[in-house]
C-alpha cells in the first residue's frame, strides 16, 4: 500500500470520527441545557445580554487580577450550572491553552525586556515582558472562551438563535440559522451513512487516486441530496402557508430572578471594566 493511500484512508476515518463527535457533542450540549442550574434558569435573552459584556471585558482588561477574578467567576458559574469542570478542561481550557500557547510562544523571547530565564540547550532568553504578554493572552482567551462555551452549553441552540433577536438580528436570518442547525445533523448523518456503507463494501484498500475519486463522488451525491432536500423543504413550508415572509413565536418570559441576575451581571461587568482599565 502506498503512503498516499494510507493518508487518504486516514482522512476518511478522521472525517467519520469527526461526524460522530459533532453529533455526540450536540446531544451532550442539549442534555446540559436541560439541567436545573443557574444559567439554565435564566431567560436566554438575559443570558446573552449578561454574558456578552463579560466576554468583551475579559478580552480587553489590562489588569491580570481582574481577568483572574472574571475567570474565577466563570468557574463558579459553571459549578452553579452543573457543568463538569472536567468537560470544560477537555473541551475548552486545553484547546485554548494549546492554541494561544502556540501563538504566544515566540513573544516569550522576542518581546524586549529584562531576561528572567533561558531555555536549556537553545539558550533563548525569556523576558519578563514576554512572559507577561503570554500570560495575558492565554488568560484573556481562556476566560472569554469559558464564558462563551457556558452560554452555549447551558442554552438549547434554538433558544440562543431566538435570543439573538434581542440584538436586532432580522427574523429571516434567525430562521435560516435555525434551519441550518436543524439540517446540518441530517446531512452529517447522511454523510456518515455513506462513508460507512462504502467502507463495508470495500475489500482491501484503495490507492490514493481511487480514494479521492470516491470521496469526490460522495461529495457530489451529498450535494445532489442537499439540493433535493432544500426543494422539498421549501414545498413543505409552502404547504403550511409560507409565502416568503416568516412569522415566529417569541415565547420567552422574564421574571424577577432574570432581572436580579441581569443587574448582578451588569454590576460585575461594570466593576471589571472600571478596575480593568
Amino acid at each position: 500500500m502506498t503512503r498516499a493511500g494510507k493518508n487518504s484512508r486516514g482522512v476518511v476515518e478522521r472525517s467519520l470520527a469527526s461526524f460522530v463527535d459533532a453529533l455526540e457533542h450536540a446531544f451532550y450540549a442539549e442534555e446540559l441545557a436541560k439541567k436545573n442550574g443557574l444559567l439554565q434558569k435564566l431567560d436566554p435573552r438575559v443570558k446573552i445580554v449578561a454574558i456578552l459584556p463579560l466576554i468583551v471585558i475579559a478580552a480587553l482588561a489590562r489588569r491580570l487580577w481582574v481577568i483572574a477574578v472574571l475567570f474565577a467567576l466563570a468557574v463558579a458559574i459553571a459549578l452553579l450550572s452543573s457543568v463538569p469542570l472536567g468537560t470544560l478542561a477537555r473541551r475548552v481550557w486545553l484547546g485554548v491553552l494549546t492554541f494561544t500557547g502556540f501563538i504566544s510562544f515566540p513573544a516569550l523571547f522576542l518581546t524586549p525586556g529584562p531576561a528572567i530565564s533561558s531555555l536549556p540547550l537553545l539558550g533563548w532568553t525569556v523576558t519578563a515582558q514576554g512572559l507577561r504578554a503570554a500570560i495575558y493572552l492565554i488568560m484573556r482567551a481562556e476566560t472569554a472562551a469559558t464564558f462563551s462555551v457556558l452560554l452555549v452549553l447551558c442554552t438549547p441552540w434554538s433558544n440562543v438563535l431566538k435570543a439573538l433577536r434581542v440584538l436586532r438580528l432580522p427574523v429571516v436570518l434567525v430562521v435560516v440559522l435555525g434551519m441550518t442547525y436543524r439540517y446540518i445533523f441530517l446531512l452529517l448523518r447522511n454523510a456518515h451513512d455513506m462513508f460507512t456503507s462504502r467502507k463495508s463494501r470495500i475489500v482491501g484498500r484503495l490507492d490514493g487516486p481511487e480514494q479521492r475519486r470516491a470521496a469526490t463522488a460522495s461529495v457530489g451525491v451529498l450535494m445532489s441530496k442537499t439540493i433535493q432536500l432544500s426543494g422539498d423543504v421549501y414545498l413543505a413550508m409552502r404547504s403550511r402557508g409560507f409565502q416568503g415572509e416568516v412569522y415566529v413565536l417569541d415565547e420567552f418570559r422574564t421574571n424577577w430572578f432574570d432581572w436580579a441576575m441581569l443587574a448582578l451581571f451588569i454590576t460585575v461587568a461594570f466593576l471589571a471594566f472600571w478596575f480593568g482599565r
Binding site: P156, M179, R182, F242
Partner: peptide
Amino acid sequence: DVQLFNPTVFDEVAFGPLQL
C-alpha cells in the same frame, strides 16, 4: 425530515398557524 424544519417540536407545530 422534510416537514420538520424548525429547531424544536413546539416551533414546528406552531409554524403553520403563525404563517396563516
